[in-house]
């Protein structure tokens, strides 16, 4: 028996909008720790890891570890029927091949049940080792989204370089090239407007902008984004999901042959 009640149901709506472009089908795993997902895009270039900790739910009942295969486009269709202020409850019985999404309006005058078929998905979990990153950049998520969008009108790849000067996003294409430098800036009115650069050593990596742009679908979840870089490692682009967890996007770098 599984029953997860999320008062801030809009978070789940935003989570689905954030990952459905990157991943088609995925297993949602429920355990005592929380509600999680790990999945790769169809090209195995990017990986998304979601965790919503059990403490973040108003009610969290998960009698045994359960893995539920879902088509994310279909989940998104279901969740789009929930109001932004609705309380969302996920329910599944042991051995059932369906999951039920229950939507309650804030004043309890409307209650809806949407039952969705589950699917069998073969997926292997990858071990993501703890890594020391050469540089960690925390910046406003809207700023990062703007940079990725702007650069993708010029080129296909972005070089992200962190030095003492700041973080530089560069691209080149047929019509020309572009460089955007963001310097550390902590003298802002609100902490979420700050750009904070922690650098152990300079790092420069090349990534496909198509994936970066896909990651920025998570922007509505959080005012800030954290970009962790190490040479020879996938970049981690992390958005916090309120105080209950995170979405982490891992993207393998491009290398010169």
């Amino acid at each position: 028996m599984l029953e997860l009640r999320l008062v801030q149901g809009s978070l789940l709506k935003k989570v689905l909008e954030a990952i459905k472009e990157l991943v088609t089908d995925a297993n949602f795993d429920c355990s005592a720790t929380g509600f999680s997902l790990q999945a790769m895009d169809s090209s195995h270039v990017a990986l998304v890891a979601l965790l919503l900790r059990s403490e973040g739910f108003e009610h969290y009942r998960c009698d045994r570890n359960l893995s539920m295969g879902m088509n994310l486009n279909n989940v998104s269709k279901m969740l789009r029927c929930a109001g932004n202020d609705d309380i969302i409850t996920l329910k599944a019985d042991d051995g059932s091949d369906t999951v039920t999404f229950m939507f309650e309006s804030p004043n309890q005058d409307k209650i809806a049940d949407f039952e969705m078929k589950l699917m069998d998905i073969d997926s292997e979990h990858l071990g993501i080792p703890e890594a020391e990153y050469h540089a960690i950049v925390k910046m406003p998520s809207a700023e990062f989204a703007r940079i990725c969008k702007d650069l993708s009108s010029i080129g296909d790849t972005v070089v992200i370089s962190v030095t003492k000067e700041g973080v530089k996003f560069s691209t080149r294409g047929d019509i020309g090239n572009a460089n955007i430098v963001c310097r550390q800036n902590t003298t802002v009115d609100k902490p979420e407007e700050a750009t904070i650069i922690e650098m152990q050593e300079p790092v420069s990596l090349t990534f496909a902008l198509r994936y970066m742009n896909s990651f920025t679908k998570a922007t509505p979840l959080s005012n800030t984004v954290t970009i962790s870089l190490s040479s020879e490692l996938p970049v981690v682009v992390e958005y916090k999901v309120a105080d209950m967890g995170y979405i982490r996007f891992y993207l393998a770098p491009k290398i010169e042959d």
């Binding site: 790769m40 195995h44 990858l126 071990g127 080792p129 996938p234 393998a252």
Partner: peptide
Amino acid sequence: KPRQQVISRFFAPK
């Protein structure tokens, strides 16, 4: 042109 690597090159199956 730079070559795209895959995630499994960095993370092994559990």
